[in-house]
Structure formats: C-alpha cells, structure tokens
Design a protein around this nucleic acid. Structure first.
Lengths: 118, 118
DNA sequence: GTAAGTAGTTTCCATTAAGTAAGTGCTTTC
DNA sequence: GAAAGCACTTACTTAATGGAAACTACTTAC
C-alpha cells in the first residue's frame, strides 16, 4: 500500500496551476482593483482611475497599467484631442476575468458583513 | 450639466470595495495557491503542502498559514500522534472562497492555452 | 549512535513593491 | 503671463515580501 491521501489528481493539479498563473498575472495590491473599476466603467481616463481608486499614486497606477497592457488585459488608446487624453479599457482577454472579479467582489462584500456582525 | 461619465454608481463602488477587501486578504504570491490546494485536498499536513506547492519555503509557508489562520480562512489542528502531526484545512469561511478559486483556476487554464496557441 | 521524518523557527540577505515629491510638456482659461 | 488640468516620468526612500540555509526538538527506524 502506498500513501495516497497526500496526492492530488491531475485535474486538481491543473486547477492549482491555473490559480497560480492567474495570481502571478494579477500580482500586487492594485491590479484586481483597476480591473474591477474598468469592468464597471467600460472606459476610464488616467485621471478618472486616479481619482476613483483611492490611495493609488500616479506612479503606481502608470506602472500597473503598463503591466496589464503588456499582458493584454488592458487596451490603451490615445485620443488626439488638445490636451491629449488617454482612455483605458479592458481587452476581451481582460473582460474574460469577469467571473474572477464578480466572485471576488461578492466574497469581499459578504466577508465585510460577517466581520461587522461580530 | 455635470460630468457624469466618470462616476460609478453605488453598487459598482461596493463591488470595487469588495474586490479590494478580498485582494488585501489574499495578498502575496502564495495564499490563493495554498487555498486552492486545501480546497482540492480537504486536509493537508505541513509537509504535504510544502511538497505539493512547488517553490515555497517552510518559512514562507508557515507565515502564510498563520496569516490565513488569523483571518479565519484556515483551521490548524495539532494531532497528538508521536511525531506530532498538524493538519490544515479550510474553515467554512475559507471554503466560501470556492467561486474565487474556481474562477481563477479556470481562467488560468484558458489563459495558458491561449498563450500557447500563438 | 546515526540518519531521517515531522513541524516548524531563526538569521541573514536580496528583491520587489510602494510611497513621496517634484518635474515635464502640452494647452486652455483667467 | 500665471495658474491649472492632463498624462505622465523621474528620483529618492522606505516598507514589505520572499528566499536560502541552518537550526531546534522530538521520535522512530536502522
């Protein structure tokens, strides 16, 4: 008899790997929040995001947006208005994170309630 | 006329806040992976987790488990066997993260496939 | 008595993330 | 012509995270 209880099957390993991949892509304090904001707003300009996401500095916002753009989750569009404006929106790839965003949103709301009850 | 396009409604704000709360609780590289592993395994001993999650050091694993325990997502049980063994499992609160884990798992699997296709 | 297994802790170091503050280059408004 | 708004960038600093290696304390097996 071999030890079996400590082994996970292939399907589970795959899921754990998937979680790890997703986690790596969404690393840091802000990426999921940015995605959630864009998910709700559709499009946002830099200053809209900056104002909407409390506590984020322009430097960090800029860096996070670049990361997200590199991973093809966010699309950046420069409009040739005079003062230049830049729009950010989710790519289809980014929009496909909807289940993750919704699950995290719902869970967070419930968790907050359960804490306040005590 | 006021600017309206840059405003999110209350419900959306709530969701963004929820995402932020969840993100804060699951901060760092490893927490979601640990939760996914426990979600699949039911129970795991320290060394099981250590072996199963590739690349994590005992120090970091120990710290992450403590954080998760503090936030009541993971339960730690010491068994009075001789060599002492310790079991970790998700609390009901931790188990309620199932949608998040599943969504992240699925998305990660799809994302990986979409990258490989190119 | 030496090794190996369990469940960690400790120390030390490197990397990364994040925050502050100021600056840039452009334009419109006062 | 000064201020203010947009979209950033740069420089500097601090805080947080993460990793490697060794060590503790206990027990069983060889």
């Amino acid at each position: 008899m071999k030890k079996q209880k400590t082994e996970l099957t292939g399907v589970c390993r795959l899921q754990v790997q998937g979680v790890k991949d997703t986690q790596d892509l969404l690393s840091g304090k802000w990426k999921t929040v940015i995605i959630a904001a864009l998910y709700n707003a559709g499009k946002f300009r830099f200053m809209d995001l900056s104002r909407h996401i409390e506590g984020i500095s322009p430097k960090v916002l800029s860096k996070e947006l670049k990361d997200l753009e590199m991973n093809r989750l966010v699309k950046r569009t420069v409009l040739d208005t005079m003062p230049v404006t830049v729009e950010y929106e989710l790519t289809p790839q980014g929009k496909s994170l909807n289940k993750v965003v919704e699950a995290m949103g719902e869970w967070g709301i419930k968790y907050r309630k359960s804490i306040l009850k005590k």
